[in-house]
Amino acid sequence: MSDQLLVADKLTRRFGGLSANEAVSLTLTRGRLHALLGPNGAGKSTCINMLSGDLPPSEGRIYYQGRDITALDAPQRSRVGIGRSYQRTNIFPGFTVLENCRLAAQSRHQRAWRLFANALGLRDTLDKAHAVMAEVGLEAQANRIAGTLSHGEQRQLEIAMVLATDADVLLLDEPLAGMGSEEASRMVGLLDTLRRSRAILLVEHDMDAVFAVADEITVLVNGQLLATGTPAQIRSNHEVQQAYLGEEAFHA
C-alpha cells in the first residue's frame, strides 16, 4: 500500500440542494489503472473536477502521498504532480503541436522572471516536449497547427501535454471519446504503458476498453459510490448489473 498516490476521502459536492457527489472515496495507486464508470449524470465529471482542483468539494478531503491537498487550486495541484485531460479536447488550437507540448513542459520550470530569455532556447523544456511527442506518436506532426489535427490526434496531443508536466497521477476524462477503433486500440496500448510508472484514473464509456485495461473499477450511480472492485468483481456484482450495466452486457 506504499504506492498510494492519491486518496479521496468521502468527497461530497452539492449544487444547491442537489448532491452531485455524496461521500465518494477512492484510492489511486502507482502501477494501477482505476476506471470510473457510471451512467450519464452519475457524477463522474464532478468527481474528476474535484480531484483536479477545477471544483472545490463541499465536504471531504483529498490526499496526495499523504499530504492534504484539498485547499490547493488547479495550478497548484498540477505542480504537485496531478495532471488531467479533458472530455472535450482542450488544447491551444492556434499553436503548433510542438508549442502545445513545450508550454506544458515549461510549466515545470517557469522562469517567469527571465524576461529576455528565448523560450525556444531552453533545452530541458524543448527536449521534454520532443520526448512526449515521441511517446504518444506525434513527433512527425510537431510543426502542424494543433487545430488542424484529426480528432484522434488531438486526443493524443492532450495526453502528451499531461505527460509533459511529469504528472504521476493522470486523471483522464474519456480519452477515447470519438475515436475510431484503430486509434482507440492504440490509445489503450498507450494507457497500458503509462500505467507502469503512474497512477491513472480513467473515466470512460467504452466498456470493452475499460474491462480490458482496468485494474480496478469504481461505479458511481446518482452521485453515490455503488461498488469498487476488480473487473471480475464488478462484472459479477448484482447491484451493479441491476443499476447500471444491464444483464446482457455480462453474458456477451
Binding site: N90, I91, F92, P93, G94, F95, E99, R102, L103, Q106, Q110, R111, A112, W113, R114, L115, F116, A117, N118, A119, L120, L122, T125
Partner: peptide, 14 residues
C-alpha cells in the same frame, strides 16, 4: 519570445 511572453499568449488562447 521569453517564457513569460509565451505564457501570456497561452493565456489569451486558453
Amino acid at each position: 519570445r521569453s517564457p513569460f511572453g509565451r505564457v501570456l499568449v497561452g493565456i489569451k488562447s486558453n
